[in-house]
Write a protein that binds this DNA or RNA. Sequence first.
DNA 1: TGTACATCAGTGAACGCGCGTTCACTGATGTAC
DNA 2: TGTACATCAGTGAACGCGCGTTCACTGATGTAC
Lengths: 203, 203
Amino acid sequence: MRSSKRKKKSYHHGDLREVLMNAAVELIDEQGLHQFSLRECARLAGVSHAAPYRHFEDKDALLREIARQGFEWLEAAGRSAIAGVEDARDRLDAYGIAYVRFAVEHPAHHRVMFTSHVATPNTVDPGAFKLLVETATAVAGPDAPEEAALAAWSLSHGMSMLLLDGRVPHATSAEAAEDFARRVFAQWRGPLGGTARKTGRKR
Amino acid sequence: MRSSKRKKKSYHHGDLREVLMNAAVELIDEQGLHQFSLRECARLAGVSHAAPYRHFEDKDALLREIARQGFEWLEAAGRSAIAGVEDARDRLDAYGIAYVRFAVEHPAHHRVMFTSHVATPNTVDPGAFKLLVETATAVAGPDAPEEAALAAWSLSHGMSMLLLDGRVPHATSAEAAEDFARRVFAQWRGPLGGTARKTGRKR
DNA sequence: TGTACATCAGTGAACGCGCGTTCACTGATGTAC
DNA sequence: TGTACATCAGTGAACGCGCGTTCACTGATGTAC
């Protein structure tokens, strides 16, 4: 009666599936994967502990869905980051920086995607890696494309882990983390790695 | 009676503490951290489930001890890898490669060190990171030493994770993994990063 | 060498706990006529 | 618009389980004299 519902809610709760996923992400952010439980997730969502079974086959299915969503978002972020960037080397950097930014903005997703038992290379992550390989291939040439991609992925992945573990001083916000990633990428093409910019350009 | 004991065994079991740690490592290797239990560990070690409490205060204490051991081994491997290597740039590579090799040879330790809740930056890992910083400082100059170390650490750390997750094709043995790391490091100073070797040298 | 005592590693029963999952149910929502 | 029925999201009790941890105990080992 109070006010007209803004969203059309179907059935009783409406969007319990989404609410449960958000609750799971919140719990994993706060307490880590290792003690995440379905029951506490339902509690946080304000439903009985049996309710989740109307939306997910079991506990792992919920986590798998979070992983799937994470890979989807990651791919979108990557595509968005390289859109309009011409220089292949810049594209690789942009993608890596977006990767790191995604990790620090969605730490729970990152954890589920990369340090849980539910996301194996075969179950998820179809597009994100392929996109990385394509970008890396464009910059590295056809001689060692996959390994160039793996190198860039390693650097991005490593930075993400260190950031999430709080091992990078002064990187306390997503912006600061992104700046860090930007500087590291610059560094690898700069003093440490040499200046390849002059040679690799198209014109 | 059968034969004289080779090792002097004290008390009943002898070296249950060590046996328990080995059992824990074996279990974590096989089943992952997320379902490691003290009881199964004791079972595998052939003692009652209460026996571990004579050697470790609680479950986390056992894991913490594995982490501590891991950081100790990692530091030793790093020191050994850079011993006798003159060129600072080569030292950084050598350390990073040793880091990766350690990860693939001791995956359970790596997991406990970097993806468990027991090893926080404040509880352990005193020497290993300092060693890395020192090496990186020597190669990068005093302008951005810590960030150079973080970059190298990121690359090594990322490669380790991808290798442990089985995301690097054809890297099925410790040797193959080390070769991969070697190639990636070479790649970063090579085509992708440019050839810094000619400029960065001492003479 | 032998005896008495102290120490302490390992035992097995017992505790309480939160978990994942199932099930018969209820009550709200959607649909056919 | 109204009624009868089907659907299905959420409930709450119940299940069995393995876990971490405690405790009084036992029996082997070490030590003093």
